[in-house]
Amino acid sequence: MNVDSIKNGIVIDHIAAGSGMRLYDLLGLDALDCSVAIIKNVPSRKMDKKDIIKIDADIAINFDVIGFVDPGATVNIIRGGDLVEKRSISAPDRLVNVLKCKNPRCITSCEQDIDHVFKLTDKDNKIYRCIYCETKQN
């Protein structure tokens, strides 16, 4: 399967197979006008299978979202067809306005204009909890 290489843009590589769509949704890539490719289940020597997202525009991207979905992913910044930066990602300590708390008893369910903030409470098991009610994100 061939997807054109990009001149100026971002390639999110080494995404755990199956996580590409979630990352696409949480990054809000559906709102972009430029070409975006999600390639699923690409054979990988290291990972066996992986997902890749290619964005054909040099946009600002929320690295916290990538770190939340898959801290093992890498981000390649492409300019003029060349790789100018390769970034490793780690799980962020806090996630602001990425997820919404689903607990109906949480203050975020009724307070207007409030930031939805989740905190990494268990690094080993990658568990994030709402800072207001401590409900675990799903």
Partner: peptide, 10 residues
């Protein structure tokens, strides 16, 4: 006191 969890933190 508030019925919603986290209200005092807000």
């Amino acid at each position: 006191r508030h019925p919603k969890e986290g209200a005092p933190l807000v």
